[in-house]
Design a protein around this nucleic acid. Structure first.
Length: 534
RNA sequence: CGGGGUGUGGCCCAGUCCGGUUAAGGCGCCUGGUUUGGGACCAGGAGACCGCAGGUUCGAAUCCUGCCACCCCGACCA
């Protein structure tokens, strides 16, 4: 009835409603105005949320705002942006050199792995089956209804292909043909590649569906040699983390629960992030003869006997980028170790007039040349589209270790202002001190941020004797907890269920001491390291 | 796969409960001018199938139905 009325007499009803709305709108607009003012206050605050306020969001925002990476249109997959990729290239460059210095060569194996390969090693397939992307078809066709394209069901693969989650299987099926004699050993190969693991929840760099990494795969004639290789590569990772990333790590090996699927022993380096959570930064696996047996890789020994080869694999990924961000950065943005910073020094000119720019520019170019001659990577930001203050904030956000500001005053005084990113200290230096100061500062920053991270880790590592103490620290303080454990998977699982903390590793340098498991009271001979982890 | 949330110019988002003015504001972008030693200011300008598809209504960003996408919390993990 009412709809009939409104249909027949719209003007009357419209008029009536209009009066009502006039009053309503007056109130509504006043409310909106007030909300708007409040809202503007909120966004005027800092670029980054503070670590103490929300560490997780701080990390997410920082990765994006520092231009390292962003989420792509593909769910779970990131775009690594030029600035972020430049850091990755530095990481690659250093590690690649270290690998080659220890006798390894690079090669490349296929992205796709036949499904049957993956299932040849039982533990391995078990470990990865739940997170594999599978290629089932090789052709598309136009949709019959004309709306786009669809999978051509006639183009079904005889055998599905798995997008590699790791390459052991395809590599070992290849090694079978490469290895006949002890003379072919050791075989020391590395590949830089992308891999895919279908993760439920992803975070930039820390866990993405596709990520970049390197995976080393080696074959040896003896068990001892393979173990030696596993440990050697672990040491390379540790050295890289500490000397280049300025990030202290604990070397250790994993419990059976945390071990790589298919490995006899998994070694790892574990780092502690500023929020007290641990992050596995690299792994090195002793694979025993598991893959050799699965893929029938035998060699003839000096004695003329047929033997299975001994294997290792080891890798670090773009996850290191996440570790790098979380290890040193502060509420103002990234803090990069000078040895991995794409830009080590930035020069910002300050001027008002063209004449002033001329003076400043001349000086800046001279300094730039001198630093370049010393092998320091330097950027002279002479854009006139941004003000100095804007540039200061920008390079702080991007973690450039050293900033040189040059203004007319400096030209007159034969000086410059040098600011260091790690401590945010600024000082004036005379022209003849510049080069030596920069060289000293770059080393000093590298050491200082390492020390800071090291001290933080020391302060965040606690020995406990009881489960109550353990829970208290995990819940309230975070960090590493060093405790006795009875060595069983049951106890490990119970602790994980109770506290979300896992055994990060059994440290290689753990001292032998008699103790009691904090949960069961059973005897234990050494302490293991627990933490909540990424 | 469960539980919660969100889709509005490039970005952050207001407006949605209770349908009605030209879809508001900030950032960014463009133009001109003044500026430049810690994220400048003024003036002007461009930019929106309000996630998609139906429906209800004189009238839908707003209500209804269906779908899609993304985010957060769990189970899984380098």
């Amino acid at each position: 009835m009412s709809s009939l009325f409104s249909f027949v007499c719209p003007p009357i009803r419209f008029y009536y409603k209009n009066i009502k709305y006039f009053v309503f709108f007056c109130i509504k607009f006043i409310l909106i105005e007030e909300k708007q003012i409040l809202y503007q206050k909120n966004i005027m605050s800092k670029v980054l949320i503070s670590r103490s306020e929300n560490y997780s969001q701080w990390y997410n925002d920082l990765v994006i705002k520092a231009d390292l990476a962003e989420n792509s249109d593909v769910r779970g997959c990131m775009v690594i942006k030029p600035y972020g990729y430049a850091i990755w290239e530095k990481i690659q460059g250093v590690l690649d050199k270290m690998f080659k210095e220890t006798g390894h060569s690079n090669a490349y194996f296929p992205l796709f792995i036949p499904k049957s390969f993956l299932s040849k090693e039982a533990a391995h397939v078990e470990g990865f089956a739940k997170e594999c992307a599978v290629v089932t078809h090789y052709r598309l066709k136009n949709s019959p209804d004309g709306k786009g394209i669809i999978v051509d069901e006639d183009a079904k693969l005889e055998e599905e292909l798995i997008v590699r989650p790791t390459s052991e299987t395809i590599i070992w099926s290849t090694y079978k043909n490469w290895i006949q004699s002890y003379r072919d050993l050791p075989l020391l190969i590395n590949q830089w590649a992308n891999v895919v693991r279908w993760e439920m929840r992803t975070r930039l760099f820390l866990r993405t569906t596709e990520f970049l990494w390197q995976e080393g795969h080696t074959a040896h004639s003896t068990k001892e040699e393979a173990i030696e290789e596993t440990e050697k590569m672990l040491n390379i990772y540790a050295e890289f983390a500490e000397k280049w990333m300025a990030m202290p790590v604990i070397k250790g090996y994993k419990t059976q629960t945390e071990r790589f699927a298919g490995a006899l022993e998994t070694y790892c380096i574990e780092a502690l992030m500023q929020d007290g959570k641990a992050l596995q930064a690299g792994t090195s696996h002793f694979l025993g003869q598991n893959f050799a047996k699965a893929f029938d890789v035998k060699f003839t020994s000096k004695e003329g006997k047929q033997e299975y080869v001994w294997a290792t694999s080891w890798g670090v990924s773009t996850r290191l980028m996440g570790a790098l961000v979380m290890a040193h950065s502060d509420d103002n943005g990234l803090v990069l170790p000078p040895k991995l910073a794409p830009i080590q020094v930035v020069i910002v000119p300050i001027y008002k007039t063209d004449e002033e720019f001329e003076k400043v520019n001349e000086k800046a170019i001279a300094i730039k040349k001198q630093l370049e001659n010393k092998g320091i990577s330097i950027k002279y930001d002479n854009r006139d589209t941004h003000k100095p203050g804007w540039k200061f904030a920008e390079y702080e956000l991007k973690g450039v270790p050293i900033r040189i500001a040059i203004g007319p005053r400096d030209v007159d005084n034969k000086s410059v202002e040098i600011a260091r990113r790690d401590t945010l200290e600024k000082n004036i230096y005379t022209d003849n001190e510049i080069i030596s100061t920069i060289e000293i500062l770059l080393n000093d920053i590298q050491e200082n941020i390492y020390k800071k991270a090291f001290d933080f880790r020391t302060a965040s590592t606690h020995k406990v004797e009881t489960y109550a103490e353990f829970k208290d620290i995990i819940e309230n303080k975070g960090g590493f907890v060093s405790a006795h454990w009875d060595g069983t998977a049951e106890t490990e699982l119970r602790i994980k269920e109770d506290t979300k903390a896992t055994i990060r590793c059994i440290p290689l340098d753990a001292v032998e001491e008699n103790g009691k498991c904090i949960v069961t009271g059973k005897p234990s001979t050494k302490r293991v390291l627990f933490a909540r982890a990424y």
